[in-house]
Design a binder for these strands. Structure first.
Length: 321
DNA sequence: TAAGATAAGAGGGACAT
DNA sequence: ATGTCAGTCTTATCTTA
């Protein structure tokens, strides 16, 4: 789905054509691809408003969400002073009803499943903010977590661990470029446990997870390193070719994206170090180097692919292969 | 100082036992 | 279930230009 945001001006190229990715929530410039915002907010009226009902329908509170532990559907017992006809109850009944209210409140919070969801969704909301994720993804994560709770997957594992894994799974399902490392850092959870829980979720809940393609990570790494749009596009071309040549199979997509971007920088003469790229991509320099080597070895005709100007040829040919 | 080389070790998938 | 194997990535350290 594409939506134009005419009032937003791209901070990179100045154009005002914006495109929103409905799933990942990223708002990018249609002209140059610069990511303006990674998180969408809900603004404006909730429904369409007709002239005769002015101001009657704008914003009636938060939308209902799977990430509300009770989805606002709980019922509270009213103050037990009067009966249904408005007559005051005898004092004995009032006492009884007060006791009922007390226990009703207690049971809501003490029911293990509910308490679990409250904790989990509080945690989810914090994590969502830390990682700059959209509401659509939180919804998915909440859905996955509820399922996991039903299946008893949480038993023996911490709430934090499973809700983090659920959010990771939601990102994977929506091909939102976040790495396991992002999650282990944001949630302060060991990567090892996180992968284990994610795998468990994946297996038990039959999640449909699309294959992660390296090109999804290019904008993120490029923005972090302040790489030009031109180079970014070349990196994408390199990746396309790499996939065609089947040198991408079995390789870490972030590492591959980092290497492609580095190669693009070398070719265009932009000075970005391996270290910067590696850091931005969340992989080591060694990995960048190895993938870089693979790319150079297998894409020796890369100049033709990228239609590079002459002056770069000398530099390119002077490299040792 | 950036980039390249090398080695040891970890974790996980495929496959066989 | 458990073990082995090939391959990948990380960490650490040294060398090179």
């Amino acid at each position: 789905m594409e939506i134009s945001f005419l009032k937003t001006r791209c901070t990179h190229c100045g154009k005002t054509k914006m495109v929103e990715d409905a799933v990942s929530g990223e708002i990018t410039c249609k002209n140059c691809g610069f990511v303006i915002k990674e998180k969408k907010e809900e603004t404006g009226p909730e429904w369409r408003e007709f002239p005769e009902e002015k101001n009657t329908k704008s914003r009636v509170g938060l939308p209902s969400s799977l990430a509300d532990y009770d989805q606002w559907l709980t019922t509270d017992i009213g103050k037990g002073e009067k009966d249904a006809f408005g007559k005051f109850l005898p004092s004995g009944s009032q006492t009884l009803i007060r006791r009922l209210i007390t226990w009703d409140e207690r049971s809501k919070l003490r029911e293990p499943g509910k308490r679990n969801l409250i904790q989990a969704f509080q945690y989810l909301s914090r994590l969502k903010d830390k990682l700059n994720l959209s509401d659509a993804i939180t919804e998915k994560a909440a859905y996955i977590y509820r399922k996991a709770l039903e299946r008893g997957i949480i038993r023996g594992r911490s709430i934090e661990l499973v809700i983090t894994a659920s959010l990771y799974a939601a990102c994977r399902e929506t091909t939102t470029p976040r790495t396991l490392k992002d999650f282990s850092e944001a949630a302060n959870i060991q990567r090892k446990g996180l992968t284990r829980s994610y795998r468990l979720l994946h297996k038990e809940l039959d999640l449909r997870v699309p294959v992660v393609t390296p090109d999804r990570f290019i904008p993120r790494i490029a923005n972090a390193c302040r790489v030009s749009e031109k180079t970014k596009r070349q990196a994408l071309e390199i990746l396309k070719k790499a996939v065609e040549e089947r040198i991408s199979a079995g390789k870490d997509p972030t590492g591959l994206a980092a290497a492609a971007l580095y190669l693009a920088c070398v070719l265009t003469g932009e000075s970005v170090t391996q270290k910067e790229i590696a850091e931005a991509a969340g992989v080591t320099e060694v990995t960048v180097r190895n993938r870089y080597k693979d790319l150079r070895k297998n894409l020796s005709d890369i100049q033709k692919i990228l239609k590079l100007p002459e002056q770069n040829n000398k530099f390119w040919l002077s490299q040792r292969w």
